[in-house]
Design a protein around this nucleic acid. Structure first.
Lengths: 124, 124
DNA sequence: TTTATTATTGCAACAAAGTCGCATTAATAA
DNA sequence: TTATTAATGCGACTTTGTTGCAATAATAAA
């Protein structure tokens, strides 16, 4: 299934790319110009994740956030950096810090999703 | 609002206590003897979390898992240990390892939810 | 440039997790 | 034993996310 370039995809990608924080589908819907179907947007976001352009962050607020992969090379996605969600301004951002996880004997690591909540420097 | 001891609460707590893995509401419903209303169970689980007897794990499968606090003292809950979910047997367990997260300047830490996916020693 | 192919979109319906109001039941205190 | 109010069950609801299907449009082929 070869991917096709569409204006919807470009719009979503530009919003993600120009955002300094991770965005939920809801956030993106508010930022996008005009109308875009929710199902379509989820399909776009899912395809970005599959293709490795974007990564998901599963938050404790029940939403999934999306952010462009900055330090990930093609075929080398390391998502074991820490995400931070401010409990006051609700912004979700990627922290620089990476965590090292020693897996127990016999366990195989696949992916990590590390979320820290608290207050950012503006809200502390 | 003083808490009251009920058989439903005891049942849920015993299930959580005797489980070596973290359980979702769905998991508990399957294990509980007889019927228990879903809303009731969520209320029970939420009260356990509020009281600090149980902690939540937000998983990438969209569910919330619950586990008794083992190494947490009253008023000192440190949930910055790592959780692991096996992609094959779907078990969710608490790993011993604790992570240290250096917060950026001005940020306040509140809680951490760190989930690793992969394959456990049985499924590797 | 025109046509054929098939990825993408929008719509509506659906699914699952979790919450909430309200009347009823039952644990605890008086 | 009675009064108080926390806990329960029920049903309706919300939110996040997915899916089938017909219509549309991006790309390849002619």
């Amino acid at each position: 299934m070869k991917r096709r370039t569409t204006s919807s995809k470009q719009a979503v990608f530009n919003i993600l790319k120009s955002s300094e924080v991770a965005l939920s589908q809801d956030d993106i819907e508010k930022k996008v110009a005009g109308e875009m179907n929710r199902a379509t947007m989820y399909r776009i976001l899912n395809s970005f994740c599959e293709d490795g352009h974007v990564h998901r962050i599963f938050s404790d607020d029940g939403r999934t956030y999306f952010a462009v992969c900055l330090n990930c090379k093609e075929n080398d996605h390391h998502h074991n950096h820490v995400h931070f969600r401010c409990l006051k301004c609700l912004r979700m951002e990627c922290l620089k810090e990476e965590i090292e996880i020693k897996m127990p004997q016999g366990y195989t690591f696949k992916d990590a999703n590390c979320l820290v909540t608290g207050y950012c420097n503006c809200c502390s």
